[in-house]
Amino acid sequence: MTDTLSPRTASDSTDAFGPGTGTGRVKRGLAEMLKGGVIMDVVDVEQAKIAEDNGAVAVMALERVPADIRAQGGVARMSDPDLIAAIIDAVSIPVMAKARIGHFVEAQVLQHLGVDYIDESEVLSPADYVNHIDKWGFTSPFVCGATNLGEALRRITEGAAMIRSKGEAGTGDVSEATKHIRTIKGEIAALKAKSPDELYVAAKELQAPYELVAEVARLGKLPVVLFTAGGVATPADAAMMMQLGADGVFVGSGIFKSGDPAARARAIVKATTAFDDPEAIADASRGLGEAMVGINVADVPAPHRLASRGW
């Protein structure tokens, strides 16, 4: 049986941590504990506390939610360390933060700050259009976005300990999230149906290592946790992602760009747990006030679509 869990460890990390830290199992394990939960984007301490008080399983600390990044344009970078440190101090749940694709120094800074997960994110402007970060060398675990199985497996090969389907962040339009989770799940199902002698060509077509492809075919799932992100704005959106097979959801702009963030946060948390119970989802959906206004993905010109960043 092939194990792709820890080809390398974080022993060459720039920060010193204790024995047994930063192993593949420890990194992937935290994501296992987040399953069935909602990870919420927050831009300040007050939002972080509202998220924690209303059932977020973790928060993503950033200066601007994707809807504002999209509206304001310009280069989006790692957030101010003061902001991230203040949010780490303010909440007791895990804190994630974003580094630009390929920007390994932003990742070193985030690890130094002690964030619980680093999101190498297409929501920020890429820093390297060829290489992603070599994530094995870090003690902090990484989550990366993917639009299809091959992309997910390439990120896992680079050391990602958690995958989120990308969707189209900052739109409030869930259609791309649906497409990406369906694509990944469908490709896994197709892989599982293949005979062993077909997996070599499958690996070539997926542009991913054979060992990892064979592992996915054997398990019938990714070897890491798979969340969904990008456009989730309502309890029903979250429940649909769970019914489509996501292990949990990221909600970016959908909560704090809505009329009543606390109530919406609670409602999305409830619907994520009771994802197969229409009565509970209906209850959760009542009286939430305005959802985020949103943009139809079809109206976003292709060069401005974030999901196409990363490869």
């Binding site: 024995p19 830290t21 420890v26």
Partner: peptide
């Protein structure tokens, strides 16, 4: 501490027979 301090180690658990428990 935070996730960078999460770890795995072997642990003696006298109530269980057999080798130490590998604990995460």
């Amino acid at each position: 501490g935070t996730q960078v301090d999460s770890f795995e180690t072997d642990l003696e658990v006298p109530m269980l027979e057999g080798p130490p428990v590998h604990a995460v």
